[in-house]
Design a protein around this nucleic acid. Structure first.
Length: 435
RNA sequence: GGAGGCGUCGCCUAGUUGGUCUAUGGCGCUCGCUUGGAAAGCGGGUUGGGUGCAAGCCCUCGCGGGUUCGAAUCCCGCCGCCUCCGCCA
């Protein structure tokens, strides 16, 4: 939600943002008109209501004939107040409906363009040269199957397409990632959280996922609950309708949860393996801070993501996401793309968004600074999306025989295991390395 | 799931025969006086939101409807919490 005042004080700021987002400019004028209508109806209502109150006070103080005289006047006034109230409700509803169609104001400096415009900010690490090493890199599914660690067929049998089982060594790899991510989050100063995965419509809507992204969300009509696509939703709604003292900020949570996505509109896209799935587990960072600190917090979140990815030895790029591809809530977004050898390109593995006050306004989250109460800023960032991190680990660390070296950082979390080995290879190796 | 009770401005609380409730008191917080400094004491302030330069005005007693000239107070629905029972990781 945008600041309604901005419509009156600086509509051009909104227009500029709409332009680079590729969103409607007419919407701005419609909203301004609706705002004026709304304010007029409110003014009418308030003056009528004031008159009614005054009359009511007089009635309470009088008796007898005088009271009867006063009462005779009240009925009509009451009807007028009710009519005015109805108009206010209608005008407010129309205004709100228009306001909810606005995406967040894009921060100056965000590159303009759409989904296909990739602005690479930096490249980190060097992809392995498999040609020089003399073998064709397998893709993650092939490796996963050799390790007897990813089972798509049974995933489909049990739950349908885009579902999977992680098994044995790869399941263990996820557990290691979870534990490692937790320790990393603690070292970054985050409070660990395990949030609910089913949320009410208000939480889903407040975080901006019921707008253009609504078709991508699982819904349980019998219970009026949504399955979250990210822990961002419960972590943002956690402080909804609260006022937080400014000296408590920033608040940093790292939430672990499953993420459910219908992937509507991505039929036929990334159908192989666990790159694009209906469910995966994820460690998500979430920050509440002052609007003034939002940009620097955003850089910090990006820094944590880079540190995490680099610590696992994955080559990656950082992208400054173009204005037209920001989604509803983000004012700026950085994606980290990890190197995927089988595709010989970088693919998205993490994403961090600065939502400024946009989500906070929708969710009623404010901060008190001295005597002033105003919306705060919220930011989110992926610490570790398990499925995709498993993909890049398996592919980047594979060896010619199908075994996979465990990243040094994860070895302590896998009981010292240094290599994941296909069942077809000598079991002596596996036994020796787990010992 | 069944039965009953409750839901007031940070916390606790008054209010329940509908009308000056523009919501009482305490705690906490805060400002001032006092003090060498502090405590105590005394005095003021303290729910949020909208609008306005301001004074002010309007909204807000879990949420949403209704009755009424008028609702914290009466009625209906919903939500949440507590107690007991049933079921169950």
């Amino acid at each position: 939600m945008l600041d309604a005042k901005l419509l009156r004080t600086d509509p051009d700021r909104i227009r500029r943002s709409q332009l680079v987002r590729g969103d409607s400019l007419e919407l701005v004028d419609e909203a301004i008109a609706a705002d004026e209508t709304r304010r007029a109806t409110i003014a009418t209502f308030e003056s009528l209501r004031a008159a009614q109150k005054q009359l009511g006070t007089q009635i309470a103080q009088t008796k007898g004939d005088e009271k009867v005289t006063l009462l005779a006047r009240t009925k009509e006034l009451s009807l007028e107040v009710k009519a005015a109230q109805t108009k206010v409700d209608a005008a407010e509803a129309e205004f709100t409906a228009l306001m909810e169609r606005f995406g967040n104001i894009v921060i100056d400096g965000v590159p303009t363009g759409g989904e296909d415009d990739l602005y690479v900010v930096e490249t980190n690490g060097v992809p392995r040269d498999f040609v020089a090493e003399g073998f064709r890199p397998r893709d993650h599914l092939e490796i996963g199957e050799l390790l007897d660690g990813i089972d798509m067929e049974r995933g489909a049998k049990v739950s349908g397409s885009r579902f999977y089982f992680l098994k044995g060594q790869v399941a263990r790899l996820e557990f290691a990632l979870i534990q490692y991510a937790l320790d990393k989050a603690l070292s970054y100063g985050f409070t660990p959280m395990i949030p609910p995965t089913l949320v009410k419509p208000s939480a889903m809507d407040g975080t901006g996922f019921l707008g253009q992204a609504a078709a991508d969300v699982y819904y349980l009509p019998a219970d009026e609950l949504y399955l979250v696509g990210t822990a961002e939703v419960p972590l943002a709604a956690y402080h909804s309708d609260e006022i937080i003292e400014a000296d408590q900020l920033p608040i940093r949570y790292a939430g672990f949860s499953p993420a459910f996505r219908r992937e509507a509109g991505s039929y036929g896209k990334d159908t192989r393996g666990i790159f694009r799935v209906h469910w995966f587990d994820k460690f998500e960072m979430f920050v509440y801070c002052t609007p003034e600190a939002a940009s620097s917090e955003h850089e910090k979140l990006l820094g944590f993501e880079k540190d995490f990815i680099a610590s696992l030895g994955i080559p990656f790029q950082v992208l400054d996401v173009a204005s037209g591809d920001l989604g509803l809530s983000a004012a700026r977004k950085y994606d980290c793309y990890g190197w995927v050898p089988s595709q010989a390109r970088y693919r998205e593995i993490t994403s961090t968004s600065n939502c400024t006050e946009f989500q906070a306004r929708r969710l009623g989250i404010r901060m008190r600074e001295n005597t002033q109460v105003r919306p705060l800023a919220t930011l989110n960032g992926t610490l570790c999306a398990m499925a995709r991190m498993i993909i890049v680990i398996l592919e980047n660390n594979q060896q010619a025989d199908g075994s996979v070296l465990v990243p040094l950082a994860l070895q302590p979390y896998m009981g010292g295991l240094t290599v994941m080995t296909p069942a077809s290879l000598s079991s002596a190796t596996a036994v020796a390395s787990t010992a």
